[in-house]
Structures are given as structure tokens and as C-alpha cells.
Amino acid sequence: MSTSQAHYEPIVGRYLNLELLGRAHRLYVEEAGQGIPLLCLHTAGADTRQWRGLMNDPEVTRDYRVIAFDMPWHGKSSPPPGWQTEEYRLTMSDYSSMTLTVADALELDKPVVMGCSIGGRIALVFAIEQPERFGAIIGLQSGATVDPYYELTWLHHPTVHGGESSAAYVSGLMAPSSPDLERWETLWHYMQSGPGIFKGDLYFYRGADGDIRARLAEIDTSCCPLYLLTGEYDYSVSPQDTQSAAECIAGVKFWVMPKLGHFPMSENPALFLSYLKPVLAEIRENR
């Protein structure tokens, strides 16, 4: 790329100072576009960069104000004061509370919320507990529980590089056909994750606290539309896992996304957008 081709992306990032869970926080928030607020939640151990493809797509940002924030301890958001004496462990109630507080602080009016993986789980929790707060809910790689098929110890251990091991553990969750550039970008985010943060995010996700199977039938999609999309190559939340959840929810719309995996928006943004845009169009038409 020559100097004359240098250009800024339309994404704008700022730091938001606010109180979360009774403590002061400095949170990194970025957004692009205008229109219907679309609040995007990144996966465990990652950050807002996963949504770069969405925020750089003019067709999306023409109608949607796409907003994402790095959760505390993630990306460019700081951990809270005193973090050095704590072990980071994300609970479901804290995750839900933080997200709603950020939405309120940004004065988002009935936002569409879209989350992936742990964000896809909390999207289901919002559908159960707070449907009136949202214009629509989109769960990517959403499951009501997850099979603990690997040991978490080595994601944060003095003799193993946590960033590299975390990235390697999740590397196979992407579709083999996803472009190398986007796959390795996605893995770089994991390599940069703070020590123990990926593991801490999985605390609720893999534990009894996060198992919401018994509550799925409470979801009322007439109160808030719910869309679930799952990449076929994801084996953490497989299409069968999302299908099992969807079978418990009347009125949910569920699609499997061929040739995508666990990080659809980041591993292959262009292909993901081809699946997402009809959903966004439907939400816009019904709003």
C-alpha cells in the first residue's frame, strides 16, 4: 500500500469512565455508523476487534450504529483498581449487569444486542430475563451449556505461555476454509489476552452458574425477536448444541452457517455478513 492509499477506517474508539458493579472502570468503546443501535459482545478472552468487518461494512453502518466495548480486563479496557490481588472470574449476573449498565450509559434505545460464544450465552439470558430492554437479540454460537472437553489449567500456568496456549486451544474452532489473514488476526487477539482472562471468562460459561437449559422455555419471542446463527465447524457450540437450545424456544429463528466456525464475524467477515444481512434487514423492517 502506497502512502497515497493510506486511509482511516470509519471506526471511532473512545474511553468511557463509569461505575460497574460498584467500582470505577475505564472502558474502551468503539463504534461506526448511525441508526438502529447494534450492541456487539465479543467472545471470551478477546476484544472489540472481532467486529471490525461489521463496522467497516457500509451497507451495515448505513442503517445501524454498531457499538462494541472491550469488557473490563479485556483489550484496551482496564481491570478495576485493586486487580492485582484478585483472580478474574466472570459470573453470569456480573456479565449481564455490566452489559446493561453500558447500554444505559450510552443511552441506547432498545438496542439490538448480538453476542458470540459467551456473548451468545448471555444473549439467551437477556432473552429470558430482560427481553423488554432490547429491540431484537442475535445469538452467535449460542448454547445453553457447553461440553467441558478440555482442561482449563493450561490456559493460565507459570510454565505455559497463556496467550499462545489459549490461541492454540481455540484455533481449531474456525472453519478450515476461513482466510488465513482473518484466522491469524483472530488468534492474535487471543495471544494478546491478559493472563488468566480467557480462563476467567469461562468460569460461568462452563460452570453450573451458566447452565440455562432449564430456563430456555421461559423465553417469549413475541416480546423480543430472537435469532440464532451457528457456524457448522464450531465444535465448542456445535450446530447440534444450538439446535437443542432452539427446540426449547417457541418462535426462535435458527440457521446453521456453512463454512464458518466459532468466530464467524472475525474468521471470515465477508461470509458472515452474507448470513447476517438478511437478519438485520428483517429487524429493520419490523422495528
Partner: peptide, 27 residues
């Protein structure tokens, strides 16, 4: 079937031994 851990997830492979070493050099 596309990754060693995909095989593990569906119990199609047995992985035993020094899991610390495996994690450190998983890539």
C-alpha cells in the same frame, strides 16, 4: 474431524501424557 481438538470434543481421539507440554506447544 478437522482438528485434533474437534476429534477430542467428540471423543474420537485419546490424548494422554504430558498435557502441559502439549499445551505449551499446541500450535
Amino acid at each position: 474431524y478437522h482438528d485434533l481438538f474437534a476429534l477430542r470434543r467428540f471423543r474420537r481421539i485419546q490424548i494422554e501424557g504430558d498435557i502441559r507440554l502439549m499445551s505449551a506447544y499446541l500450535f
